[in-house]
Simulated scan of single mutants.
Amino acid sequence: MNKSYSLHKINENENCPFKEAEYSRFKFGDKSYAEKFAKELFAGFVNQFEDLILSREEIVILPSPYLSIPTASNFLCYYFKKELNSFLFKNGKKASVESKIYRNQTYVTDYGNLDFEERVKLISNDTYYIDRNFINDKLCIFVDDIKITGSHEHTVNKILNQYSVNGDFIFVYFAELINKDIHPKIENYYNYYAVKNVEDIVNIINSSSFQYNTRIVKYILSLNEEQFCFLIDNISEEKSNDLFHLAISNNYHQILEYKTNINVIKID
């Protein structure tokens, strides 16, 4: 079984079914919106899939692939899992467990403006690993924030086939682009709706519900010298240290475009 569910359907350029500013802050690390979106997403999801969920004893939930730095969808997945496990508890069922697809990313390009073919080509050199034995023959719920071209789902299905994973798979999205006449670059319109400059990034980092994710780390490491120095001067030393350790954990210090800024914040 391979199914897909999305809470919000994007049919028009000018009529977004969710609040763009909230979504943008979520994409850049504001966890309060990850929690809000997850509650809304689970409510819609369980309304459609309640019988299937309650019929299964083994449920595995997986966010979009990453190596060391979580994606924004990882936080969506975290709160979605909390909602799912509360539902399972109320129904006397065993809790779901979380797994992960490991991804070694090979590029720095933001693919939010690319079409399906360009996205698949871009990520084709990435390497992935999944624990086949852990998820095999289980109900697997793959949680992501948005489906634009379907390249993410295509890639995950390719990984599942590569590792010969059996089971039932549901791809769950907060939003999905339904109208294929709309260019995929609308994704970056949503991503950057509330992020126009480095001051907006500083504002998000200094909020009480912030946690670094892949998008904001890559954004920061791509800043020019003046912008980067402004950011470092306006966030705490703790946040700077966190940024450094996350960056090297993902081997970003070995990527030419990120080296300079990482060396500015390196820990002596």
Rank of each mutant, 00 (worst) to 15 (best):
N113C: 03
N113A: 11
L114H: 12
D115P: 01
V120Y: 12
V120N: 12
K121M: 10
L122H: 03
I123N: 11
I123M: 13
I123G: 03
I123H: 13
S124N: 10
S124I: 00
S124P: 04
N125F: 09
N125I: 04
N125T: 14
D126M: 07
Y128N: 03
Y128D: 02
Y128T: 04
Y128F: 15
Y129G: 07
I130Y: 02
I130W: 03
I130A: 05
N133S: 07
I135S: 01
D137M: 10
D137I: 06
K138T: 15
L139C: 04
C140Q: 13
I141R: 01
V143T: 05
V143G: 01
V143E: 02
K147T: 08
K147N: 14
I148Y: 02
I148T: 14
T149V: 05
T149W: 03
G150V: 05
S151I: 00
S151C: 07
H152G: 01
E153F: 13
H154P: 01
H154Y: 14
T155M: 14
T155P: 03
N157R: 12
N157E: 11
I159P: 07
I159R: 08
I159N: 02
L160S: 04
N161A: 08
N161R: 13
Q162L: 12
Q162K: 11
Q162W: 09
Y163W: 00
Y163E: 06
V165T: 01
N166D: 14
N166W: 01
N166V: 04
G167Q: 10
D168S: 14
F169C: 06
F169T: 00
I170F: 08
I170L: 13
I170K: 07
V172K: 08
E176N: 12
I178Q: 09
N179A: 08
N179H: 10
N179Y: 10
K180Y: 00
K180N: 03
K180C: 00
H183M: 03
H183D: 13
H183R: 09
P184K: 00
K185R: 14
E187R: 13
E187G: 11
N188I: 02
Y190C: 06
Y190V: 05
Y190H: 10
N191L: 06
N191C: 04
Y192S: 11
Y192T: 13
Y193E: 08
Y193K: 11
A194K: 09
A194G: 06
V195H: 11
V195Y: 12
K196T: 13
N197V: 09
N197R: 09
E199V: 00
V202Q: 07
N203I: 01
I205T: 03
I205A: 08
I205Q: 06
N206P: 11
S208C: 06
S208V: 12
S208L: 09
F210E: 06
Q211P: 00
Y212G: 12
T214W: 00
R215F: 00
R215Y: 02
R215D: 05
I216C: 04
V217C: 06
K218V: 05
K218R: 15
L221A: 06
L221C: 07
L221E: 04
S222E: 11
S222Q: 09
S222L: 15
E225K: 15
Q227T: 03
Q227G: 14
F228S: 12
F228C: 12
F228M: 10
I232W: 01
I232N: 01
I232P: 02
D233P: 03
D233S: 14
N234M: 08
I235N: 08
S236W: 12
E237G: 10
E238W: 10
K239L: 00
K239S: 10
K239Q: 13
D242G: 13
L243D: 11
L243I: 11
